[in-house]
Amino acid sequence: MTGTRVEHKVPDAAVGLCASANSVTVLCHVQPDADTFGSALALALVFSRRGVPVTVSFAEPAELPASLRTLPGGQFAVSPARVPHEVDLLIVVDCGARNRLGALADRLGGAASVLVIDHHRANEGFGTVDLIDESAASTTELVTRLLDAWGEPIDADIAHCLFAGLVTDTGSFRWARPGSHALAERLLATGIDGGEITRVLLDTHPFAWLPMLSTVLSTATVVPEAAGVGLVYAVVRAADTHEVGPEEVESVIDVIRTTHEAGIAAVFKQARAQHDRWTVSLRSRDSAPGLADGVDVSAVASKFGGGGHRFAAGYTTYGSADEVVANLIAALGN
């Protein structure tokens, strides 16, 4: 299914699909973060306010990260098995490819219309209508534009969800885009506590995170010649993660990416149920010695069937730890 892709503005068709929908499903990508889940819940709150039946879901993991359970609208989230196979409007948020929907990708075929809302440059454009703008700092920014074009007001609960995606995808505004701070000011004006939202989402971990981090950081390795800018990587084995959740595992990338000697950071995360399956998080700096614009890690991830943004991307791969590390180093070249 392909349709009209519109960048930098909200197509009338997108507003029309939302305004006329009689039933709605909003799908997040697997391993949901605050941008995809916040976008989904913000939309769910609006549809519910309009009296439209709405469900929100994601294929995996089975349990939502603890920090995301604090977002308003969580009552609309259901297990994958409870997602209707047929629906008037299916909205996919913050998801650049069908395969990022996991087992719920099969719901695309049962929707009368599909609206894709995303800010990933490599988005496949698989909706009836696609609202895609890679210049947006977060998908929640695009949801805000859609609500404005639709004429739907943003109350404190909706603002909470939108701010969650904005603050996390900008790294507490370290990677803010033009307009990011203005949007934050607008959302904060609804009365939400931006400091507390940020603390819960980015600065809170259980004590078990500390010994896990100690173990994982002991695997950190620098490959100075990789891609001409250097690579630092760490390996998270399944045995290291039994006492922590996925958000604690994902946070490792934000620690090792601070390494001065490397322009690229990678974390290899072993699946608990299938030990030859790895999810890989990639980060790069917007500049590096000898490379003014940094490395486009989304292009690297695409070699393995993944994707993302220029400076933040990921993919899934298979093999032993040594094999998946070697494959990435080979893909980066010298």
Rank of each mutant, 00 (worst) to 15 (best):
L64V: 15
A137V: 03
F173C: 03
I154A: 06
R177N: 12
G102D: 09
F58R: 04
N123E: 08
V93N: 14
R177F: 01
L64N: 08
S79N: 12
A111P: 07
F173Q: 08
R121I: 01
G165T: 06
G109P: 09
A137Y: 04
A136I: 03
F76G: 09
E134F: 00
P80S: 07
A81V: 00
R121E: 14
G73M: 13
V93P: 13
A97Y: 08
W175V: 02
E86N: 06
A105I: 00
A97C: 13
P153N: 07
L104N: 10
W150D: 02
L90D: 13
R82M: 03
A149H: 12
R145P: 03
A137G: 11
Q75H: 15
P72E: 05
A136C: 08
P80E: 06
G127F: 04
D133L: 04
L101Q: 13
F58D: 01
A97D: 15
E63C: 00
V83P: 10
L108P: 06
E141M: 14
T139W: 04
D130S: 14
A137T: 04
L147T: 13
F76M: 09
P84A: 02
L108V: 01
H85V: 00
A159H: 05
E134C: 00
L68Q: 13
G171M: 01
N123W: 04
L64S: 13
V129T: 13
E141V: 15
E141Q: 15
L104I: 10
G127V: 04
F76S: 11
E152S: 11
L104Q: 12
T70P: 00
G110E: 06
P80G: 05
G165V: 03
P153V: 03
R98T: 15
F126T: 02
V167G: 02
N123F: 05
D94T: 09
G74Q: 14
V83I: 03
T140P: 10
E86K: 10
T170Y: 05
F58E: 02
I132T: 08
L104V: 06
S67F: 08
R100F: 02
P65C: 00
V143S: 09
S138R: 12
A77N: 11
L68E: 10
I117W: 11
F76I: 07
D155M: 00
H160L: 00
G127Y: 04
P72D: 07
V114E: 06
F173T: 02
A122F: 03
P84E: 03
S172T: 07
E60H: 06
F76R: 11
E60K: 09
P178I: 13
T168W: 07
D106C: 01
S138Q: 11
E86R: 12
Q75W: 05
H85M: 05
P80Q: 07
H85T: 11
P153W: 08
S138W: 12
P84H: 05
T170M: 03
G165H: 07
L147F: 12
A81H: 04
G73A: 13
V87R: 10
D148S: 13
G125L: 02
D94P: 07
D157K: 05
P84M: 03
F76D: 13
P72W: 07
A156M: 01
G127H: 05
T140D: 11
